[in-house]
């Protein structure tokens, strides 16, 4: 079925007049091929390669004359990027800013990553912040938060949130929250839960008070993921289990509710999967052995069928519009 045959069908049914169909056929024949996304991907890949390369370059050339030049170059690039971003800045707004300049966003990301490289190097070579590593991470975090809000950049916001988490000793990026965190370290589970809930609260506030409401998604995703994974880790490893169980369950319920409010089903998926793990683990820990023996054969079969039923009828149960 081509656009042409579809148009013929629609015209036959008398929905479109002949002339309009001709116009649409004309549009279909001459429409342009947009490579917007591909170009942005290449631009972004370029930024990644450049900053990675510079990062290695500095450390490899540390005791040579050349590295002074590289440092100067990076510092100059940061200044130039900042100048560019400031030159094309839009007035601050509490909603989404539609930048007129299409490069500002990427220039800001470039500036921020270069800043990280430079700062890391200064600390490594000159002990700029002495042994107070906390400050060394905290400064970029503050700057990034400022930039994210001022220039309305979600990517920089994500960098700021990961910075904040790493200041507290956590790895938070969604794909590595499980593999890179050492949940056996004391206190890290509680830190994770508290930070996660804090991020969720910030997200909720920005959503309800409409201060950069579109940042809510980022906060929810980072916070929800971190809090739920930390809660599960606590449930598996620490006592008293009942408290961790209740915290995780409450979080999952909140995530599912958020999905309903934001019409964003990723939170639903997170809530269901984390909730299922928590409930299953809870059932096997809390229930007496005699009940378990009867349950164990059927448990997974029937609970997963139950989840399927829930997901299939999600629209009715949660009252979603989409």
């Amino acid at each position: 079925m081509t656009a042409k045959s579809i148009l013929e069908k629609i015209v036959q049914k008398g929905i479109l007049p002949e002339e309009q169909a001709l116009l649409i056929a004309d549009y279909e024949r001459t429409k342009s091929f947009s490579i917007h996304r591909e170009l942005r991907a290449i631009l972004y890949l370029g930024i990644t390669l450049l900053t990675t390369g510079l990062g290695i370059l500095i450390y490899k050339n540390i005791d040579t004359i050349g590295h002074q030049a590289i440092i100067t170059l990076i510092a100059a690039s940061i200044v130039a990027c900042s100048y560019y971003v400031f030159k094309y800045r839009q007035p601050f707004s509490r909603g989404i800013i539609n930048s007129t300049d299409q490069f500002s966003e990427y220039v800001l990301i470039l500036a921020c990553t270069l800043f990280l490289t430079l700062e890391g190097y200064l600390q490594y070579q000159y002990q700029f912040f002495g042994s107070r590593y906390g400050i060394a991470i905290f400064i970029p975090t503050v700057i990034f938060f400022f930039c994210a809000y001022r220039f309305d950049n979600r990517a920089v916001l994500s960098m700021a949130i990961t910075g904040l988490a790493s200041w507290l000793g956590l790895t938070i990026s969604p794909l590595s929250v499980l593999e890179k965190n050492d949940f056996s370290a004391p206190g890290i589970i509680v830190t994770g839960i508290v930070l996660g809930i804090l991020l969720i609260v910030i997200g909720w506030l920005s959503d309800t008070r409409s201060i950069k409401g579109h940042f809510g998604f980022t906060y929810f995703l980072f916070g929800g993921n971190l809090a739920a994974v930390s809660g599960l880790a606590g449930l598996f490893k620490n006592e008293p289990k009942i408290i961790y169980f209740l915290v995780t369950a409450a979080l999952c319920l909140f995530l599912i509710r958020t999905a309903r409010k934001n019409q964003s089903l990723i939170f639903l998926l997170m809530g269901v999967i984390y909730g299922y793990i928590a409930l299953t683990y809870g059932a096997f820990v809390f229930l007496p052995d005699s009940v378990l023996a009867a349950l164990s054969i059927f448990y997974f079969l029937f609970t997963s069928l139950g989840v399927l039923f829930f997901l299939l009828n999600i629209k009715k149960i949660l009252g979603l519009k989409k």
Binding site: R37, Y44, T48, T51, T52, L54, G55, I56, I58, Y59, I109, C112, T113, L116, T117, E119, G120, Y121, Q123, Y124, Y133, G134, A136, I137, P140, R154, A155, L157, S158, M159, I161, T162, G163, S166, G169, L170, T171, I172, S173, P174, L175, S176, K180, F217, T218, L221, F222
Partner: peptide
Amino acid sequence: LVNLEAMIIAHQFGQSPAQDHLDFGG
């Protein structure tokens, strides 16, 4: 896609906890 882009960038440039020395840069 905007959100997805932010996630990828956070994963790539995201900072890991500091250990005995700082090793930023990507």
